[in-house]
Amino acid sequence: MIRIENISKTFNGDKVVDDVSASFGQGKVNLVIGASGTGKSVLIKCIIGLLEPDSGSAFFDEDNFTQGTERLRQKIRQKVGMLFQNLALFDSKNIEENIQFPLDILTNMTQKEKKKQVDFCLDKVSLSGVNKKIPSELSGGMRKRVALARAIVNQPAYLFCDEPNSGLDPSTAVRIDGLIREISSDDKITTIVVSHDMNSVVEIGENILFIHDGKKNWSGTAEGLIKSPSPELNKFICSSKLMRQLVSASSLP
């Protein structure tokens, strides 16, 4: 479980994240949603320590990551997998080397064991056989799956996904969503997904946190989303015609 308490972050006097507290359950897909530029990615970076919050703390199970020593942070990070918005695959390495990289650095596994684990992860994301290709030879959706395979290769306890569906066609996006949900529930991983894609919310959202203007505006389950009293959330949900139709259909007796 991950718990955040009163996290705030300011850039040049502009409060991007403002006193956000929340709890993200284990084995669930926890979604942080909101419009672009509302501080979702900054929040996730504050949780994992890529940015230092001005105030507040992030707890990974019982360990206070934000206030912890560098040694503790290092230890916690070794249990984290992250899917970056820009994927952050190493261009100079092939797919196998990319996925194997965390194992090379953080484990004492033999080459045979590492190969087995890499193949298992590639199989899990339905990409068997691309081991020797380099990232630029794959499509956007395939690269996302490679990045996801790398994020889970070390069997993380916590998985962070920053906009996993950005730039993908709807069917590939659904596939990525499905993988994230499957991995989270199978391996009991605490997963936090940052998204502004309502399809993802409907597909995988179990525990949702809505951020508006850097502040926590609403939190709850996917079922409670449509009935939320928050006008900002309703405006966000109903920004597309399709969602307006879905919401009005679900409101019918």
Binding site: K45, I48, G49, L50, Q74, K75, I76, R77, Q78, K79, V80, G81, M82, F84, Q85, N86, L87, A88, L89, F90, D91, F101, P102, I105, L106, N154, F160
Partner: peptide, 18 residues
């Protein structure tokens, strides 16, 4: 700029040293 250094950090690697 392509977040590869951030990726190293989230893996628990001292990216500066590495």
């Amino acid at each position: 700029i392509s977040e590869q250094i951030d990726a190293l950090k989230t893996m628990g690697i001292n990216a500066t040293s590495y």
